[in-house]
Simulated scan of single mutants.
Amino acid sequence: MTHASTSTAAPIATDGFVLHDEDRAAIAHEREHYPHPQAASIEALKIVQKRHGWVPDAAIEAIARELGVPPANIEGVATFYSLIFRQPVGRHVILLCDSSSCFLTDYEALRDAFFAHLGIGFGQTTPDDRFTLLPVCCLGACDRGPALMIGDDTYGPVTSEEIPTLLEAYA
């Protein structure tokens, strides 16, 4: 079922946030795939995050207007999904799996090595804005634990000794 966009041709600006025309078109395209506009919320959030690196608070209202749904609905989706970043992150996000499988395969040593090597803890970004380190409950790589992702790349099993070489590829 196709839905006509409720927005005007002008960019949507909310508290200084502008939803770019390309993003509006991409959101409208996603919306066409669903009978209910709210079903496109995750994709709309991902579209904004791809451009900005994260989803600023002011973007919630703009996305809601574009989809024609209440802002609280978009906020609920944005805060539920751990891969929608609600604050600025580094150029490369490291997701370190802390699932049972990874925990049993030396996750704690790998976590501690990342803390020491990067000089940050979970939820923090290196001073040069290069890396943000986040825990994630499962990467679906249980046969390769301990596992991690950097951007779209999955690694595992990873040892503490491999961290410097691994991170050099993301200069």
Results as ranks from 00 to 15, higher is better:
68 G>E: 04
101 S>Y: 00
113 A>R: 02
117 H>W: 04
87 Q>R: 13
97 C>F: 01
110 L>S: 07
69 V>Q: 02
84 I>W: 11
99 S>R: 00
74 I>K: 11
67 L>H: 03
94 I>W: 09
75 E>M: 10
68 G>P: 05
76 G>F: 01
108 E>G: 00
116 A>E: 15
88 P>Q: 14
104 L>C: 04
74 I>W: 10
85 F>Y: 15
68 G>K: 08
66 E>G: 07
116 A>I: 07
104 L>F: 02
75 E>N: 11
113 A>Q: 06
81 Y>I: 08
116 A>T: 14
76 G>I: 06
83 L>G: 11
106 D>G: 04
88 P>W: 06
72 A>I: 12
114 F>D: 13
82 S>R: 14
105 T>S: 15
104 L>R: 10
86 R>C: 05
84 I>V: 15
67 L>D: 00
70 P>A: 09
71 P>N: 11
68 G>I: 06
92 H>Y: 12
84 I>F: 05
74 I>D: 10
73 N>K: 14
70 P>N: 03
64 A>Y: 08
99 S>P: 02
104 L>H: 10
93 V>A: 09
79 T>S: 07
72 A>W: 09
112 D>I: 06
74 I>N: 13
89 V>I: 07
76 G>A: 08
77 V>A: 13
112 D>R: 14
74 I>G: 12
82 S>G: 09
86 R>V: 04
116 A>S: 11
108 E>Q: 14
64 A>I: 12
99 S>N: 13
112 D>E: 15
69 V>C: 08
92 H>L: 02
85 F>W: 13
88 P>I: 13
84 I>T: 12
66 E>S: 15
71 P>S: 08
116 A>Y: 03
79 T>E: 09
115 F>Q: 06
77 V>I: 14
109 A>I: 01
88 P>F: 09
73 N>L: 15
68 G>A: 06
106 D>V: 01
80 F>D: 13
96 L>C: 05
117 H>P: 03
71 P>Q: 05
110 L>C: 05
85 F>L: 13
77 V>W: 12
73 N>V: 14
73 N>A: 15
95 L>F: 14
75 E>K: 15
67 L>S: 01
68 G>Q: 05
69 V>G: 07
92 H>W: 09
96 L>A: 04
111 R>Y: 08
116 A>F: 08
92 H>T: 03
92 H>A: 07
103 F>M: 08
111 R>G: 03
87 Q>I: 05
110 L>Y: 03
80 F>T: 14
79 T>G: 07
65 R>L: 11
85 F>N: 11
103 F>L: 07
101 S>W: 01
70 P>S: 02
68 G>V: 08
89 V>D: 00
81 Y>H: 15
79 T>K: 11
82 S>P: 08
79 T>C: 01
82 S>Y: 06
113 A>H: 03
90 G>P: 06
75 E>S: 15
94 I>K: 08
69 V>F: 06
67 L>I: 03
73 N>Y: 14
77 V>F: 10
107 Y>K: 00
90 G>K: 04
103 F>A: 11
64 A>V: 13
104 L>M: 06
100 S>M: 04
76 G>P: 07
99 S>I: 00
117 H>L: 04
87 Q>W: 01
66 E>A: 15
115 F>M: 04
105 T>V: 02
94 I>H: 10
96 L>W: 06
94 I>M: 11
84 I>Q: 11
66 E>W: 09
105 T>Y: 08
115 F>Y: 12
